[in-house]
Write a protein that binds this DNA or RNA. Structure first.
Lengths: 359, 359
DNA sequence: CTGAAAGCGCTAACAC
DNA sequence: GTGTTAGCGCTTTCAG
């Protein structure tokens, strides 16, 4: 008998109150309740009646069943954000931003990590077909234009977050070129002329933009960009380690400053420089894109270009909701400006005599 | 005409294929399709028929409508994880762990941040009543036993993650007492006798356990715990800063080592020690609970006790699914062991002469 | 201005 | 072994 869980632990079944209960309690029809509760426009109801309905709702502790509503309206009121497997702390504020914007509009946010054993195809298919989310926020698939098109192709409104492709999709990005300029111009103003850049894969739009901003800033200062000073890295600490070491090993003379593409990479760069006997910032200035808690926790504290990642998540969600609510013509491509350059202690004027590595 | 979005952009409506389409295509009844697709046990169907059904599903690209299924079964196949507002990186692996376990079992994971403007009450209510999630993973409400009981009281299966209360709820925690012992014993083995502890609020179960482990380890080594060496802190970098400064200001003689309750706090402690002219680890050894990327990015790299937070998220989810699937009798209280102590460079033998702060 | 009734797509008795 | 049928709770024409 303890097995007939239907009666023992009703959970949310059985005692659940439906719209019909409310209509009985309020002495009106189901239709009226539904209309009042959804705030139906073109509805002129007696104030007294509407109050009676709200009273009944409150008394019975009623909440509409989302599954029933969803079945009827073909909208799940859920969106999903697809994230790479990576531990990059930059995603946390994006998620929080997206979540806040979603709930403000009555939507739920599903998180979905793009695991090893799933192709982008499978993920989109699962989210769109199986879960029937109303829209997708995509932070993965940086380079593969084809893949990124799929959700749109699958008919699910999609906006790219911190990504863009050549395709006509909605996206929200930060102007990485401007971000890179901010960082590099700071270094130049300090007197640096030999500035290296640890970039992401150059096939990624973001990384290409950063390289562009970096190059432009150098040229504007009359400095000829040295290809040897750009090393293609990833976005994580491990990437930063290997690429910094590579830079230090292969570069002659050494740069006096390094501009890194992410906090994690920059933190790793500081570490590797120190391991190689280079003092930061005296022997090597280091600046980074993004900003976050760890910028102030490492030593020396990192000079960074702050991006408002929380806002990016919010904006992306707003664009997505527009897309969902609209007729498909409201594709929006938002480019946020980097917030500011934050000078901390990882950057300073270059030494007069350039340092040499003991090899 | 471009406004009649029903026809222009069918999205997922109109061209959507239902179980009935499949049944027609396969030449069987709807019931049969449903049974085959759900892998109904006690079903003996001709192999040829079942294949015909699967072929039809594939051909039509059919996926069951979760809303319809949900409406019928009163299960949403969604669980939610409730997180504090905090930026603590420790939550990332928990989320990923929970998400992986959820999808493995056909569930979706909703994330919900406990914002300023929402009481725990509202959150539980929203999740349970409005969204009808099947279960809740709660990482908030560390001290308020009452609040934490609410979801259970509201009839939604709940498991606490990295939290526990006196109440009879399911939870998954790491043995914080053992974790603290690992850290403190390491320090003792190095020769430290005056060891401080930056703890979380003592009303929190976790923090109390850590203090207990800390105290026990000291006593076992014949060291009398000095209450002045325990300072109540929070879990974030800012908390670590203020509490470390407080410790350094108020303590005479200074401790030779500090045991911190979280990575962020430890990182901040290192910073503050340095700002006060203390060399880490020579003047001050620092060890921390948890482990994560930043442990190796700060200087000096942090000695830590590693917790498997990803696994904690997974275990919690499994317990939750048990709870959801069961009759309510499967409350499970899981205590994970800390994985290991990781010796890095932030801890070493104490100096012979204890340091003095220049005040 | 309000109500009756027809489903949305699916599952689960209950028949045959 | 397989099919019929009655809803799950809601929205939404269409009547009145």
């Amino acid at each position: 008998m303890s097995k007939s869980s239907d009666d023992d632990k009703p959970h949310l079944a059985g005692k659940v109150v439906t719209i019909s209960d409310v209509s009985v309690e309020a002495g009106v029809s189901i239709t009226t309740v539904s209309r009042v509760l959804r705030g139906d426009t073109k509805l002129s109801i007696r104030e007294e009646t509407r109050e009676r309905i709200f009273a009944a709702v409150k008394k019975l502790n009623y909440a509409p069943n989302p599954a029933a509503r969803s079945l009827r309206t073909s909208k799940s009121m859920a969106i999903a954000i697809i994230l790479p497997e990576a531990e990059n702390p930059a995603y946390a504020p994006i998620i929080r931003g997206a979540q806040s914007a979603a709930v403000e509009n009555g939507y739920s946010l599903l998180v979905s990590y793009c695991g090893e054993n799933q192709t982008a195809d499978e993920i989109y298919r699962n989210l769109a077909l199986n879960l029937r989310v109303d829209g997708l926020l995509v932070t993965t698939s940086q380079s593969e234009d084809e893949e990124i098109l799929m959700p749109d192709a699958a008919g699910v409104p999609t906006v790219l977050v911190n990504r863009r492709t050549k395709a006509q999709s909605s996206f929200v990005i930060v102007d990485d070129s401007a971000g890179a300029r901010l960082a590099v111009e700071h270094l130049i103003s300090l007197g640096h002329r030999r500035i290296a850049h640890l970039s992401g894969p150059l096939t990624h739009y973001n990384s290409a933009q950063r390289v562009k901003g970096y190059t432009t800033a150098l040229k504007e200062a009359g400095i000829d960009p040295d290809p040897a000073l750009i090393v293609e890295s990833g976005y994580l600490a491990a990437d930063g380690r290997t690429s910094t070491q590579k830079l230090l090993n292969s570069c002659e003379p050494l740069p006096t400053a390094i501009f890194c593409n992410s906090l994690l990479v920059a933190a790793a760069t500081v570490t590797v420089c120190r391991d190689n006997g280079l003092k930061v910032p005296d022997d090597m200035s280091i600046v980074s894109l993004h900003d976050g808690t760890i910028a102030e926790l490492i030593y020396p504290p990192l000079s960074t270009v702050r991006y408002d990642l929380f806002e990016m998540g919010r904006q992306a969600t707003f664009s997505l909701l527009d897309l969902i609510g609209g007729d498909g013509s409201e594709k929006k491509q938002t480019v946020l400006a980097p917030v500011e350059f934050i000078k901390r202690e990882s950057s300073t004027v270059p030494r007069q005599v350039s340092v040499q590595l003991k090899r």
